[in-house]
């Protein structure tokens, strides 16, 4: 900052205003991105891998990020696109709806209810999994629309339907 004749003439701000450093992004978004990946993959180790991959992309792309977009939306786009990209690795990709498999047993303290939630989500289609994971992650519906590329109205309808499906699945399970 420079003051000449009592007037502020040069207000220096950092060259990249509002830009979050990577470490901070990583700290803030790790759990969120991991949970979204978990919703997509229903496999603890795979989800962790996918989340790490997503952050590698974030790290690589960060210099290109422009502040006109919301950083959260931007990160979720990268993370969910990376989920969709998993189709290329089908071989190591687990089949949906492996019922409470052994893999999950080694996780610490995963409540049965939570396991059920993951299982029911894994029975949804790929894009439904993404939409509901973002919704459960408390992303705004307008943000979800921007991440997925749908209109807000359409997104709202989809979220509502998916929630109905999940509730239905829980009810059926409870009655079984």
């Amino acid at each position: 900052m420079m003051i000449k004749n009592g007037i502020l003439v040069n207000w220096t701000i950092s060259s990249q205003p509002n830009k979050m450093p990577f470490e901070e992004i990583y700290k803030t978004y790790w759990q969120k991105v991991f949970r979204v990946c978990m919703g997509y993959a229903n496999d603890y180790d795979l989800a962790k891998d996918m989340a790490q991959e997503a952050f590698i992309i974030v790290w690589q792309q960060l210099p290109k990020f422009r502040n006109e977009a919301d950083i959260g939306t931007w990160i979720y786009r990268i993370a969910t696109n990376n989920c969709l990209r998993q189709v290329e690795r089908q071989k190591r990709f687990p089949k949906a709806a492996l019922p409470l498999n052994l893999e999950e047993d080694k996780q610490v303290n995963v409540e049965p209810q939570l396991q059920l939630l993951y299982r029911f989500i894994s029975e949804l289609s790929e894009t439904e999994r993404i939409i509901i994971s973002l919704e459960l992650e408390n992303a705004k519906q307008s943000a979800i629309a921007q991440i997925v590329g749908l209109s807000e109205a359409n997104t709202r309808v989809k979220i509502h339907r998916i929630k109905e499906k999940l509730t239905q699945k829980f009810k059926e399970h409870g009655n079984a």
Binding site: Y26, Q31, F34, M38, G39, Q52, T167, F170
Partner: peptide
């Protein structure tokens, strides 16, 4: 089955951050 709070359930999943 009582209505389940999906969001609360969902948020209970965490993992150690590498």
């Amino acid at each position: 089955t009582p209505d389940i709070d999906f969001k609360e359930l969902w948020a209970s999943q965490n993992t150690e951050q590498p």
